[in-house]
């Protein structure tokens, strides 16, 4: 989850007036508490977050910290020394690496991709969702298998962002 997604998540929580939200997936943990005079954002992830401004009328106090949660949970996978960008699925569905059976895959490990380039398709109930890259960079890892079921928010690709 990058800063933009976090911001969107917070906006969504405000829009739906959700007071408390906690999400834990892999090595990412996000906890957001709204309401009263304070909005607290706690996040610990593979990438440190900068302070996030929360658009809220009642002068929110924002705390964004990469180390404020006690007892650090060891990452499930060895964290690479660099920060890889992770592309996730917005829906539950079936992953397709190619536009049609037998066709070459949209991308391979080692490919350079641009922002907006299609990486794969996740299909649910004949609704095809083209997953695009939101960064430019190199595909380092494919995290899902062709034809495999994908859960909401599941990691699909790791991309080394172009500097």
């Amino acid at each position: 989850m990058n800063q933009k997604e976090l911001k969107e998540l917070i906006e969504f929580l405000i829009e739906k007036d959700i007071a408390e939200f906690e999400l834990e997936r892999g090595d990412v943990k996000v906890k957001i508490k709204r309401g009263g005079q304070h909005t607290v954002v706690q996040a610990r992830a593979e990438a440190p977050y900068a302070a996030v401004t929360v658009p809220q009328a009642v002068a929110p106090a924002v705390a964004a910290s990469a180390a404020s949660v006690p007892a650090a949970v060891p990452a499930a996978e060895p964290v690479p020394e660099e920060n890889l960008h992770i592309v996730k699925s917005p829906i539950v569905g079936t992953l397709y690496e190619a536009p049609s059976p037998g066709a070459p895959p949209f991308v391979k490990v080692g490919d350079m991709v641009e922002v907006g380039q299609v990486l794969c398709i996740v299909e649910a109930m004949k609704l095809l969702n083209e997953i695009e890259s939101d960064v430019a960079g190199e595909i380092v890892k494919k995290l899902g298998g062709n034809g495999q079921p994908i859960e909401y928010g599941q990691e699909l690709f790791a991309i080394r962002a172009k500097k």
């Binding site: 989850m1 997604e5 969107e8 917005p90 829906i91 004949k126 095809l128």
Partner: peptide
């Protein structure tokens, strides 16, 4: 027959 296509971000 119906075929739907979506362009989406994680939350939107």
């Amino acid at each position: 027959g119906i075929l739907a296509e979506m362009h989406a971000e994680v939350m939107r």
